[in-house]
Structure formats: C-alpha cells, structure tokens
C-alpha cells in the first residue's frame, strides 16, 4: 500500500476552553483531490491550518493527535518553513502582500534561495498562467499586488501558493471572490495540477466538490459525518442522512 500523502489521526484542537475539532481521523492519497464540505464554524479552516502549522500563529490553542505528511509527524519537523513550502495554502480572503505582482509570486522562491532572474521569470509566468491571471497582469508586473481587484488578488494568492511548487495544495474557499467563468478556468487548472500534487479543496459550494473531488469529506461541528467517494456522498443514499440533507440544501 502507498503511504498516504496526509494522515490525520485522532486530531483534537481547542481555542482556549472551546474544542473545535473533536478527534478526527482520515487520510489523503497522493495526487488525490479531497473535497471538504461543511457549514461555517465546522473546523475546515482550522484543520488546514493544523496541516501546515500556521495554526501556531494563533495563541492559546491546544492540539493533540498526530498529522503525518509523507509519513512524517509535522509537529516533530525541525524545518517548519520547508513544511509550509511543501503545503501551499490559499486563504479565503485575498491577501496580496504589499509588493509588486512579480515580487508577490517570486517571494517564496526567493526565500527558498532562487536568485537567477531567468528562473524567477519562468516561475512567475508559469504560476500566473496557472492561476488564470497572466493575461490580465502581464503588462504591469511591477505594479502593487494590493492594488488589484479582489478577484485578481485571490488569483494572485493562488499563483503565490503555486510558486514554491508545493506537493500539497490547500484551497480554502478560493472561489469566494472570483466570478464563475474564472472559477471554471481555475477548476480546469486544478484538474491538470492533480497530476503533480495532492489537493485539499475546502469549499462552501458543494457542487464544486462534486465536480472536482475524487472523495469528499463532510465536516460538521468538528466531527467527520462522512467521508467517501464523491459519487457516494452525493448519491441519493449516502451513509449518513445528514449528508444527504446538507448536500441537497435542506439542512438545519
């Protein structure tokens, strides 16, 4: 059996006294797209932040259980920066760094030690193309990334997340600020990217998970209600009644 790309075992997470993830276990296979659906406050974003350890920026959190990436316990990793380059993250709200568009995308490769202009040029163009942003910004790569529109900034963050060639790409509701046409273009890119990397797709749009994900996980109140092949989760009789209700919009 192949080692799972990501293996989560009995993960619990609390912010202060409030536990938000109640001991969940699952795994993600290499080159798989895993869709994670669930209502707000169900722990989707927190889960992603545990995987690349950006949860550590929040004070007063407590985490138990283990998360393994390529079989290696992330909490034991000495080089957390390498982990974060391995696990690309696209946050739901676009955060253009206060740099030029070019420098935004070149930020992570430069930090990792890429210095040659030609190599950087190549990375910047490839990532902006993959994020469906190249055509709109190719003539003004020197202007500030924060001056772009919301949807463009969102795609800029996708380009940035791709810039360090991650093995795992976490997309946290990436399409919130993007129009449907561009969303479809990025979805096509994701299908291509699947050949190179593992993708975790957190989304509020259940249909997006249905279109893209091989397997889908339904997370609710910090617990996994159901995880299985997407066709099964979206079928007329999933294992859990709540899944059917949520997917069909008659939840709550």
């Amino acid at each position: 059996m192949v080692t799972p790309k990501v293996q989560v075992e009995n993960l619990r997470l609390s912010y202060g006294p409030k536990e938000v993830i109640h001991g969940i276990s699952f795994h993600i296979e290499p080159n798989e797209i895993l869709g994670i659906i669930g209502p707000a406050q169900s722990g989707k974003t927190s889960l992603l932040r545990c995987i690349n350890r950006t949860i550590e920026f929040t004070t007063n959190t407590r985490q138990t259980g283990t998360i393994r990436v390529d079989g290696e316990d992330v909490s034991q990793m000495r080089d957390v920066y390498a982990l974060r380059r391995k696990v690309g993250m696209v946050a739901p709200l676009p955060v253009g760094l206060p740099l030029s568009i070019y420098d935004n995308v070149a930020f992570a490769p430069r930090n990792a030690g890429v210095r040659q202009r030609a190599a950087l040029d190549e990375i910047v163009e490839r990532c902006l193309r993959q994020a469906a942003l190249w055509d709109e910004v190719k003539d003004r790569l020197d202007s500030l990334g924060t001056k772009l529109s919301g949807g463009q900034q969102q795609r800029l963050t996708i380009a940035r997340a791709l810039s360090h060639s991650p093995q795992i790409l976490c997309l946290d509701e990436f399409s919130i600020a993007i129009d449907p046409v561009t969303t479809m273009r990025i979805e096509d890119v994701l299908k291509e990217l699947k050949k190179e990397m593992t993708i975790i797709l957190v989304t509020n749009l259940v249909q997006q998970a249905r279109r893209l994900a091989a397997r889908t996980m339904f997370l609710w109140n910090g617990e996994i209600v159901e995880i299985g092949p997407t066709s099964e989760v979206f079928s007329d009789n999933p294992k859990d009644r709540r899944t059917y209700d949520y997917v069909n919009g008659i939840f709550g």
Binding site: F57, R84, A91, V95, L97, A108, N111, A112, R160, S163
Partner: peptide
C-alpha cells in the same frame, strides 16, 4: 499598523 494578514500570508509561504 501593518495588517496581520501580511505576516500570516508571508509565513504561510514558508518565510522565516
């Protein structure tokens, strides 16, 4: 006054 999102965005990209 620099938004925290800059810090987190940069750190999430593996910056020290």
């Amino acid at each position: 006054a620099v938004p925290d999102s800059y810090r987190e965005g940069a750190l999430a990209l593996g910056a020290t």
